[in-house]
Each structure stands twice: as structure tokens, then as C-alpha cells.
Design a binder for these strands. Structure first.
Length: 201
DNA sequence: CCACGGATTGGCT
DNA sequence: GCCAATCCGTGGA
């Protein structure tokens, strides 16, 4: 697929692990007013609705997780720990219940606005830059993503993902997922090796 | 009705 | 390295 082109529905309706790995290196774009905030996706986790006890959809459909049962290409935003939002890209077929959690991005465009969203100022240190979007809830703060965007169509204008060349397999690493208590041994966290904006090594 | 705990973060010991 | 912050969906009584 061509660089700088918005990913179409059919990109998202495939297997969650395929989509998760191919999302690495692509650009998350958030339009707020006239400003575009963009960042390269460098770390994700796959949640497979059918067999994954850690997936929010494992126990069946509820009001909270119903967006995750859509077909691929919608945004699932959930609220957790009383103060944080996390963003997921829904994947697969209708009622499959699979999604990819976006855990870290490398800031690209609109960094000043991201810094304001996250730290309340646009003059940030090198440390703060690295700390801007290297975690799932940090991304939501910097990109101004909250529950009002839950269920939004990723093929629309407000938030979407731009294509870029597929990374070769040797640039991608896999590990167990972070922060979960169920299915802890599944190696379903994927990230770009040696990228300095990862949430962890 | 009420208690529990979570796909996290950041501040304090 | 440990733990509080802080909300609300969920599930059990």
C-alpha cells in the first residue's frame, strides 16, 4: 500500500496479529481543529476476543466493550484506573471481539500541541519529549483522545492511520504483554526493536 | 445496593 | 521500588 494514504477498512478486518504487526511504523493521525497531531506507532498489543482471557470481550458483550465487537476499523476507547484512557484499534470480523492496544508512538507532527495537552506547556525538555507518548494512557492525553471518541470510524476524518512501507520481520520483536493478570504468558506484545519511544524494553 | 478491581501513571520512600 | 489516585462497569447479594 502507498505511503501517506489512509488505511482502508479491509486493512483492519484481518487477523488481529497480522494487523498488530503491520500497524508498527504506520502513523496515527488525530485532527483537532486545524491542527494535525501525528505519531509513528512503535508498540502495540493484540487482544484476541475468541481465546484470550485478558481481552475485555472474553466474557461476552457488555455496554462497556460493545465497540470492540464491531468489524475492524473502529476505535475502542476505555477508561481505567479512575483516571486514564487507552486506545484500541478494533480488528477482524463483526462480533469477533478482537483489538490492538496502541501502547507507544514516536511523536512526529504537532508536538507543541501534544506537549500542551500533556504537560500544559510547549517548551519541553528532552526527557519530557521521550515521555510524551510512551504509554497507552499518555498517548490519549497527548492526542486528546477520550471516551467521546469511543466507537469512531477510523476511515473517517477525525482520527485515522496513514500507511507506510511494511517493516521487515527482523525489525519487529514480540514479548509478553504488560500490566495484565490473565493470559500473562501469551507473547502478543509487538514492538519496533531499539526504538527509543517504547514504554519498556 | 454495594464492593471490587483494572490493558496506568507519577510521586514519594 | 512501592503505592496512592480516582472512576465506573460489572457482578454478586
Amino acid at each position: 500500500m502507498n505511503p501517506q494514504k489512509k488505511l482502508p477498512r479491509k486493512f483492519y478486518t484481518r487477523d488481529v496479529h497480522v494487523v498488530a504487526k503491520e500497524l508498527l511504523g504506520k502513523f496515527l493521525v488525530r485532527k483537532t481543529g486545524r491542527i494535525f497531531l501525528t505519531g509513528k506507532i512503535v508498540e502495540v498489543e493484540a487482544y484476541d476476543g475468541s481465546i484470550d482471557k485478558a481481552a475485555h470481550t472474553y466474557g461476552g458483550k457488555t455496554k462497556r466493550n460493545e465497540v470492540m465487537f464491531n468489524e475492524g476499523g473502529f476505535l475502542y476507547v476505555y477508561f481505567t484506573y479512575g483516571m486514564h484512557f487507552c486506545s484500541n484499534v478494533v480488528t477482524g470480523k463483526l462480533n469477533e471481539g478482537s483489538a490492538v492496544l496502541i501502547r507507544a508512538v514516536e511523536p512526529a507532527d504537532g508536538i507543541d500541541q501534544m506537549a500542551i495537552n500533556r504537560f500544559g506547556k510547549n517548551n519541553i525538555s528532552a526527557f519530557e519529549l521521550k515521555n510524551l507518548t510512551n504509554g497507552p494512557a499518555k498517548i490519549c492525553r497527548a492526542f486528546d483522545i477520550a471516551c467521546s471518541l469511543n466507537g469512531i470510524d477510523l476511515t473517517g476524518e477525525e482520527i485515522f492511520i496513514l500507511d507506510s512501507p511494511k517493516l521487515s520481520a527482523n525489525k519487529i520483536a514480540a514479548s509478553t504483554r504488560i500490566g495484565i493478570k490473565k493470559s500473562v504468558d501469551l507473547p502478543w506484545r509487538y514492538y519496533i526493536k531499539n526504538n527509543s519511544f517504547l514504554s519498556r524494553k
